[in-house]
Computed example of a mutant assay.
Amino acid sequence: MNKNRSSMLIVIGASAGGMDALKKLVTQLPQNFPAPVFIVTHMSADATGDVLVKALNESSHLTCVHAQDKQAFKNGNIYLAPSDQHMLIVKGKILVTKGARENRSRPAIDPLFRSAAVAYGNRVIGIILTGYLDDGTSGMMAIKRCGGVCIAQDPEEASYPDMPKSVIANVGADYCLPIAEMGSVLSDLLSRDLPENKPAPEDIMIEAKIAQRVLSDLPAVQALGEQVPYNCPDCGGVLWQMTEGKLLRYRCHTGHAFTSSALLAQQTVKIEETLWVALRMFEERQNLLVTMSKNESKQSSSSISQRAKDSQVHIDRIRAMLKATDKDSHGEGAR
């Protein structure tokens, strides 16, 4: 056997609509598939992922399991990132970490792709499937810069085409395919001879270390970009801007990372949360003023009643802003 084939691996990212897409993909992989397969799909923190593991085991000739920290991986197995944890790859084993969210997600696609690119370089085949926004784009850039292969689902057949569209626009896919054609392409790619790997670019290695929680400090993010006048919506820390081609990305020194689209979506969520708090406080204030007016003299009561009416003006404005924010949230593909 070609010595390079046994050291290759497949990394897959999916989000909304991902279960059906993943089932269609894994059913094409033969029982003796000569590479391990690693999957990140966005899920809520309280989900177990058991339903997806069961579905993939029923659809595939391969064995699908939840990834475990420091687990050695083997060809012909599928490893699914556990809920609320990132899955990373180092030489010969998996790391499962509770690192900071990236693109509002944990597990996130970018940390998996980036770590695989650092560890295995041109032996990595990345696949991006259906999903909202653009998680996976930066990670796919890392795979390409390290000599790996980029495969994107044809957006025309994706249930939610944002993620494959972003990869195609910002990275340039080596293959843009319907899922039904991916199995044969993978078999062909795994049979090819490959040149020797070259060291990963320094910025990719820094971000891979941040995801491992080995490195998360000011010098690290300062080496990646320039500080900007925005704050991290997750922790309140300052952000540094990184530019990768046309893709704008942001990091704080604690490890949170966002594309510009993900940052905008998360800012919208935080604005909505703030508006709901403000609405509650104005309504409580109005209720208190109404109660006070009933117990005051006629002159004082008139003044207090006017203040209550002024509060209603603010309440109406906030409700209008909440309606606009709700529309904006849906426009950003909020998960």
Rank of each mutant, 00 (worst) to 15 (best):
K24P: 00
G331Q: 12
G17S: 06
Q267H: 04
C150W: 00
G76Y: 00
D326T: 05
I10T: 02
R145D: 13
V171E: 01
V51L: 15
I128G: 01
G331K: 15
V90N: 02
P34N: 05
A117P: 03
K209N: 11
K327Q: 13
H66M: 11
M8T: 01
E202P: 11
T291D: 04
V65C: 11
S293V: 15
D326L: 15
H256M: 06
M87V: 08
E207N: 10
L218Y: 12
C232R: 00
R335C: 13
A220D: 02
S311I: 00
C64I: 15
L263A: 09
D234T: 06
Q153S: 06
S59G: 14
Y120M: 08
S187T: 06
A223T: 09
G92M: 04
G148Y: 01
M163I: 10
M321V: 01
R319W: 07
A220S: 12
R319G: 10
V185L: 12
G131S: 08
N32C: 15
V290E: 15
M292C: 05
I271K: 07
Q299V: 08
I12V: 08
A324Y: 14
M141W: 03
E226V: 04
L29P: 00
A108L: 13
R101N: 14
A55D: 08
V124F: 02
M8F: 00
M8Q: 13
R104M: 11
P178W: 14
A16G: 08
E156H: 13
T63K: 09
R251H: 14
S305H: 07
V238A: 07
L194G: 04
S302I: 14
P36I: 00
L288T: 08
P155R: 10
A100E: 07
Q266E: 12
S7Y: 03
R5G: 05
G183Q: 12
A117N: 04
V149T: 11
M43E: 01
E207Y: 05
G172S: 12
I127G: 05
N295M: 09
P161Q: 04
E181G: 14
M205A: 07
R280K: 03
D50F: 08
Q31E: 06
L25R: 01
T41D: 00
F73D: 02
K3D: 06
I109P: 00
T130R: 02
Q241H: 11
L275G: 13
A180T: 13
F113H: 07
K323R: 12
I271G: 01
Q267F: 11
Y175S: 05
I179H: 02
R285E: 09
C64D: 04
G121Y: 01
S305Q: 05
N170T: 12
R285G: 07
M140C: 14
D46T: 14
G99L: 10
L279Y: 11
E283G: 06
I204G: 14
C64L: 11
A108F: 04
K93H: 13
N57H: 06
R114S: 14
Q222P: 03
Q286N: 05
K54L: 15
P82M: 13
A257N: 03
C252T: 03
N103A: 11
